[in-house]
Every structure is written in structure tokens, then in C-alpha cells.
Design a protein around this nucleic acid. Sequence first.
DNA 1: ATTACAATAGAATTTATATTCCAAATTAGA
DNA 2: TCTAATTTGGAATATAAATTCTATTGTAAT
Lengths: 276, 276
Amino acid sequence: MSNDEHTTLPKSYEEMVREISAQHDSLSKRLKQIARYALDNPNDFALKTIAEIAKKAEVQPSALVRFAKAFGFSGFTDVQRLFQQRLLESRPSYDNRLQHLRESSDNTPLDLLKKFAVANTIALEHLVEEMPEEKLKEAIRILSDAETIHVLGMRRSFPLASMFYYSVTKMGHRAHLIDNVGGMHVEQQTNVGPRDALIAFSFSGYTPYVTSAAEKTHHGGIPVVAITDHLLSPLTHCSTVCFHVEDGAVHDFKSLGASMCLVQALVVGLGAVETD
Amino acid sequence: MSNDEHTTLPKSYEEMVREISAQHDSLSKRLKQIARYALDNPNDFALKTIAEIAKKAEVQPSALVRFAKAFGFSGFTDVQRLFQQRLLESRPSYDNRLQHLRESSDNTPLDLLKKFAVANTIALEHLVEEMPEEKLKEAIRILSDAETIHVLGMRRSFPLASMFYYSVTKMGHRAHLIDNVGGMHVEQQTNVGPRDALIAFSFSGYTPYVTSAAEKTHHGGIPVVAITDHLLSPLTHCSTVCFHVEDGAVHDFKSLGASMCLVQALVVGLGAVETD
DNA sequence: ATTACAATAGAATTTATATTCCAAATTAGA
DNA sequence: TCTAATTTGGAATATAAATTCTATTGTAAT
């Protein structure tokens, strides 16, 4: 009659999550929808009534019951109990882990992760505080006016460049990534036309080619938006708008969190302008 | 007839507790009994039914309703909601902050920047809290044992892949970026040998090739470290270790801050192991 | 295209849960 | 001690929620 359980029925929230993720592929469309909702909104699953959950998840109440049965339960109530358990387990008291972290000298992987997270968070705060609104607007105006945006960033900056390129093309803007494939950066760069713009990323190492490319473009009267790490960076004086982003570092490894954030803001800001 | 409320009715668990302790002396015997039970077993009050609570507290169900009314509520259900809130408060819901953020008013460039910064910060907190130490260690062990680390990530994930590649080679580890230049990803992938490892990045779009490459590698008995965005991602089941990172998003544009952070932690962790 | 099968929505039903009510018990004041 | 007011227990009721059932829709195979 009903679903034969190929598997033992979950006894805890964790088991349930594991089971959901394991069975997910073999579930029907509606049941998948519920599975996703469960994982994304475990609190609702714990406290709301079937009717409420059904409404929010945009399914029928009966579908929730079927969901429960698909995992071997006798009804949804049993599933709900599992999700309630989760609320009871571990209510971690809020510690001042930021402070504690800085003092800790360990370098276990988890410690490193925490340090990077803190470094990034601080960098993000800085970024927002130091950012003059005018600069952002100006940069977006430049990029928006460009027929094609040429994107340049090597080595450490390449992830930023490729991300900008991906996002901005996704938004429908014409762009070109100077990736130096085949060592053809010179050829790639001669493509920059008078109605275009260049966005250049360069950090501490300052790959010479990036600097010289920005210089040449800037002197040619083509607008350059630069993202770099220091006022004394070579890009400061060969760009129309220059952002100085201090990314957090741990053991000399810069984390690009803040720069990424800026890139995204530029791209989305660009999108907002262009759909007006 | 009924209890005139000398006081405004509680809006939160904390207010309720304060009210209970304030009124306690003026309550009847049975109601005192219930008050004590409520303070000692707030979890029961949040999750059990009236009948169950009544039984455990050795009172009549109706007494619980009277208790609620004594504090100005229309029924016990309202009291229960307050006690449920408490369970939710202890796990601050990121969703709420994000939600609030998305709905917030303006979309000036500076606003967008702020939104991304907050979204990233939240994602970072999340990342750290949810990360099991074992997973990190396991991943680092796998990568460290590999003769060559093959790095795979397309489209949106390409920035992550290229960053991992850059950092890890900088540290002196042998690595190979599957960048699909010249459409040669198939050829690039056949290079993965039995003593190597694969690290794969894939998010929501789940570029099919990345999935299939991970599958093939995994089934070939070669260790796979995956970084993806959801438990239901196709990578979950074709990887030796799988990280689920929820990056913040604004206007559907995911910011890679948290993923970047994880990448850096992996790389530096790897460096720490290898210099031992 | 046709059939067989599985999945689904929504109404109908059953079950459970909360609330009300009132008679009985308790307490306080005279 | 007697009376009136208050509190209490527990059955009766009303309300809400979960579950089942069925007609309908969707889907895959022939």
C-alpha cells in the first residue's frame, strides 16, 4: 500500500536532514519543493501548523503529509517533532569570540577560517565607512557610458577581473576580459576603442603589464576605473576613478572579500542605472 | 468577572518572565504552581500541548487557560507563542536580517555597497558557525596528500577556482587549473591521476560539465573536495568532502565573500600542514 | 495518439487540542 | 458556625489541526 522504507526512519533532526538530502533525487516534484523548504526554513517546520507551512511553501497540506510518509513516518506530526528537537538542542550562549580569537595563537584550520572571517568582516566595515558616494556614482557612470568595458587583472587580481566580467556580461553589458591567453595581451588591449572604458584591478605585486596598460589607456583619453590597495599604488595616477580597498590578511594572504563586495556593488549599480 | 489587567500584556518572553515574577505573590495556589512550572520548564511550555503540560505540572488543563487569562491573554495559545519566540531568538535568524535588507528602500550605489557588505558579513558569520572542524581537516588532508591538485570551476565559480589555483601554486604546491581554454576541458581532465585530487566549485546554475567531471573523478576513486551552495547540490553526493557555503545575495547577485574566505582558509591551512 | 501509472489539489473526515462552563470544594470574613 | 466569595476539577463543547480520500491532472511508455 504505502511507501516501503528502504531505510530506517530518522530519529533526530540531523538524521532527517541527511535522509532528505540522500533521497532528494528520487522524490517527486512537489516533494522536492517541500524538501527544499524544510532545509531552508527549519524553524517554520518546527513551530507552524501544517496549514501555515503549506501556505508559505506553496503546497497543499496533504502534500506535507505525503512528504512525511515518504520518509516512513506515520504523519507529519512526527516529522515536526524532529524539527522541534533541533530548537531544544544547543542554544549556544553568545560569547565574545572576536576578542578571544585575536588572542588565540592556534592555527588549526578552523582557527584560520575564523581569522579570515574576522579579517574580512573588518575589511567590509572599512570599505563601507570610507567609501565616498561620489566615487561610486562616477565609476558607475563611466562604466555605463562605455560601449565595451575592458576588464584587466592578472595573477592575484584575476579572480576579481573574471568575476566582474562574468557578472557584467550576465547583465547584458558588452565586456571583454583581457586574460592574456596565448600571451596575447598586447593584441587584446589594442582592441580598446575611444568610446570604451577600462576597469583595472591590481594589488601589491602590481604586475607591470597591468600598470602600463592602464597608463597607456588613460593617456589615450579613455576612462579608467581602478581598484587597488594603496594610495601609493601606480594605478592611482593613471585612472579616472580609483578605489583603494584594504582587504584583510592572515599570514600575508590577502582575502579578497572587500574587493569582491565592491565589484558586486559596481555591477549591480550598473544594472540599476541601465534599466532606468 | 475576570482579572483586570493592572498592566500591559507581555510582548516577549522576557516581559512575560518579568510579569510572572512580579505578579507571583498575588496569584492563587494553583496559579503559583503553574508559574513555577513555566519558569522551570520553558521548553515544555513552548512545545507541548496543554494536556501534556497540565499532566506534567499536575494541574488541570483549564488551570493553564486561567493562568493565561490572569495575565491578560485571550487563551493559553498566546502564552505559548511567547515561549516559542524564546527558542527562535537563541538562534538569530540570518534570513530575517537578509530579508529586511532586501526590502530596504533605496538602491543608490552606496546603498547597494552597504547591502552587499552586510550580506557578506552575515554569510561569514554563518560560515564560521556551521563549519565542522573535521570537514576542514579532512579536506586539507586530502589536498595535502595529492600529488597534483586539479582545480575546477566554471562561470560564476571560476573566480574562486582561479584564486585557489593562484594561491596554492604560490605556496609551492603543484596544481592544475582546468580552465577550458580552447574548449579542451576533456583533455585537461584526463590528466587527473590516481594520486591526485580534485577540488570542484559549483553554484546554483551547476554547470553540467563540472558535475559530471566530479562524478567521474569520484567514481574513479580519486578524492574530490567540493564547494557548493546547498545540501541538494549535485556535488553533495559525488565528493569525498563537501562544503556548503551560503553566500549573501542582493538582487539575485551572489557575493562570493564567504566562499573566498573558505578558499583562503583551505590554502593557508594547507600551507601550515606542509611546513610542519 | 492512447493507455497505464503516478502525482496532485482540494474537499471531506477524523482526530486532537483548546476553551468554556458549572458543580463541588475551599477559603475568608462575620 | 454560617455565608459569600473564590478557586478548583473535570466533563462538555467548540475550535483547530491533521489526515484521508477521490476526482483530476500530469507524465511516461507504447
